[in-house]
Design a binder for these strands. Structure first.
Length: 561
RNA sequence: GGGCCUGUAGCCUAGCCUGGAAGGGCGUCUGGCUUCUAACCAGAAGAUCCAGGGUUCGAAUCCCUGCAGGCCCGCCA
């Protein structure tokens, strides 16, 4: 992506540096993203050497630079020399760039990235703590796609192991037909199964036997357990779908056993020089990898020879890399150590390693989320609340929106608000869930951004003239300048958010863009004015960037609201 | 005990990688809808950037030491 402004900035920087050396002044740092203007020369460092106040240096420098035609104006504040580029002369190029179809989109890369997200144990309905995973994962998938990668999304289903076996046992021994949606229905079976596991020796043995059979690859047992997980998963998928998240591939842990992939990993790990044995169980000694203490022994088989979760995870990643060039995992922070061990194991057998993004947990005002203590907010519940509130808000201000349109719009706004409010927070920051924040429809929120988009759409609808005269104003209104400046940042924001895996950059950017657009349409009338053509171009571009920014967040941008 | 992460106005949050003017939002107070939709806009008040030390002309940002909170430390998943 050619960046006109970046070029203009670099050129101007060179000019400034040249001027400084001509004047025989010390070289000064230049800020390329100052709070005011486009470039800012920081004059403090020269103060001592020149025996002058920074403010005085700034003023003098400004006088020397003013003759430069690419500079629109210079303001000196507290020893900063703030330079505004002459945007008008760049305007034709800028308009060209921001109006291209692919503005902000990364060039097509011939790289397939597989993003694994959610992968929650299929034992019951998703709650809002877990909801952070699909929202981050889906947003990253959209970001990578927008940046030009070929993206696949995948949900890893842990359909063997204690939880899955307990579920299968629960369904068979405590059938339940009540409770509506299937994941709510079956979680009751799971709860009863868990109670049995804890209190009833016979049940415990049955569940542990089932686990062993699964790990050992007994087909009938695998089918039983996999079937149970799949049922609950159906319910979870409905919730995810409503959130706008639809993982493309579901990979089942059991498949890794039946395909022999796990066994192959065990064989590979056995050949490692780090491999040791203790009472028949195999482990890697990680001392030389800098891991000491309790985690030093990384077991990959049990004394009965069966595999462990991490062993299967190694197999899973080898399987993944047969299907992609890069892998990204979205995981809760409780998986950090696990991720580290996985990486070491993969490296030990010369396999590629995945990237990981970890997020902190969501708690409730009463404390940690706990199904047992009845302290949970389900994702479904939250979506219902948000959509209902959105509906009430629409009814308050738009009597003309009714019926199906009302339902659809409420859905877009309610779901959008949730996604926005979760993704806006940096992922390694934990937070307490509060209804009033989750349901915020003002300020830094999805509806705020959506509203700006709808206003842009509305302005465009009011433009009647078709072949407007192309007129670029001789002066830009400050609100126009700030809007254009913000628009031009979009490509670099997308790149940064993708590459540094910081999806929260997008809502932050959209908030700023919306805010600048709102000020623009307050200050600069568009319809039936001398500058209708020019401003219409700005509105079109803003609308498109808002639309695409929201799309990256998985939020639909309505034409009216 | 060890490891990782977080700490910024009453509340939420950006900035930390790459040092240079503490940015948004909620809430509070004041003002603005006969003029492209007021989910908006303008203005005000509100910050010892967890504490202490170090490096630097300059530290929210880098380094060290604490403190507080979260997460992890099984031949579980």
């Amino acid at each position: 992506m050619t960046d006109i402004i970046e070029k203009a900035r670099s050129k101007l920087k060179e000019i400034i540096i040249e001027e400084l050396s001509k004047l025989n002044w010390p070289e000064l740092p230049i800020n390329s993203d100052p709070p005011e203007g486009d470039l800012s020369v920081i004059c403090f460092p020269a103060a001592k050497e020149m025996k002058k106040a920074p403010e005085e240096i700034a003023t003098e420098l400004a006088e020397h630079l003013l003759k430069e035609t690419s500079i629109k104006e210079i303001e000196t504040v507290n020893g900063y020399c703030n330079i505004t580029i002459n945007w008008i002369e760049l305007m034709p190029e800028i308009l060209d760039e921001i109006s291209t179809e692919n503005f902000g989109r990364g060039e097509k890369k011939n790289k397939e990235i597989l993003i694994e997200h959610t992968s929650a144990n299929a034992t019951g309905p998703l709650h809002i703590g877990r909801a952070r995973n699909p929202i981050i994962g889906d947003t990253m998938a959209r970001l990578f796609d927008f940046s030009g990668y070929q993206v696949k999304t995948e949900y890893y289903v842990n359909d063997i192991g204690r939880q899955a076996c307990t579920l299968a046992y629960g369904i068979e021994n405590h059938p339940n037909e009540e409770g509506g949606k299937i994941d709510y229905q079956l979680v009751e079976c799971y709860k009863k199964g868990t109670a049995d596991l804890e209190e009833n020796e016979k049940a415990k043995k049955e569940i542990y036997d089932l686990m062993e059979e699964c790990e050992g690859g007994v087909e009938e047992s695998l089918t039983r357990v996999n079937g149970a997980s799949k049922k609950v998963l159906e319910g979870m998928k409905i919730s995810l779908d409503r959130l706008g998240v639809t993982p493309e591939i579901f990979t089942y842990e059991s498949e890794l056993i039946t395909s022999g992939a796990v066994q192959r990993v065990v064989t590979l790990l056995q050949k490692s020089s780090l491999c040791n044995e203790e009472e028949g169980a195999l482990y890697l000694d990680l001392e030389e990898k800098g891991i000491a203490g309790r985690n030093q022994k990384f077991f990959f088989t049990r004394k009965n020879g069966l595999s462990l979760y991490t062993t299967r995870d190694v197999a899973y990643h080898m399987n993944k890399f047969e299907r992609c060039d890069e892998a990204l995992n979205i995981l809760g922070e409780d998986h950090k150590l696990q991720g580290k061990l996985l990486t070491i194991a993969l490296q030990e057998i010369s396999q590629p390693v995945p990237k990981s993004m970890f997020y902190s947990f969501v708690s409730l005002p009463g404390g940690k989320m706990s199904t047992r203590a009845g302290r949970v907010v389900y994702l479904d519940e939250m979506m219902d609340e948000a959509v209902l509130l959105a509906k009430r808000e629409i009814e308050k201000r738009r009597k003309d929106i009714v019926g199906k349109s009302l339902e659809e719009l409420s859905e877009k706004i309610g779901i959008g608000a949730i996604r926005y409010n979760i993704i806006r927070i940096q992922s390694d920051k934990g937070f307490k869930f509060k209804w009033e924040e989750a349901l915020n429809f003002e300020g830094d929120s999805a509806p705020f951004v959506m509203y700006s988009h709808a206003r842009a759409a509305s302005i465009l609808k009011k433009i009647k003239r078709e072949n407007n005269e192309v007129v670029i104003p001789k002066e830009l209104h400050l609100s126009e300048l700030k809007l254009i400046r913000t628009l031009m940042k979009f490509p670099s924001i997308v790149t940064e958010a993708t590459e540094r895996m910081k999806p929260h950059k997008i809502p932050y950017y959209l908030q700023t863009l919306s805010s600048n657009f709102n000020k623009f349409y307050r200050d600069c009338p568009v319809v039936e004015t001398e500058y209708e053509w020019f401003r219409k171009e700005l509105v079109i571009s803003t609308k498109k960037v808002l639309f695409e920014g929201l799309e990256i967040l998985g939020i639909e941008a309505p034409e009216t609201m």
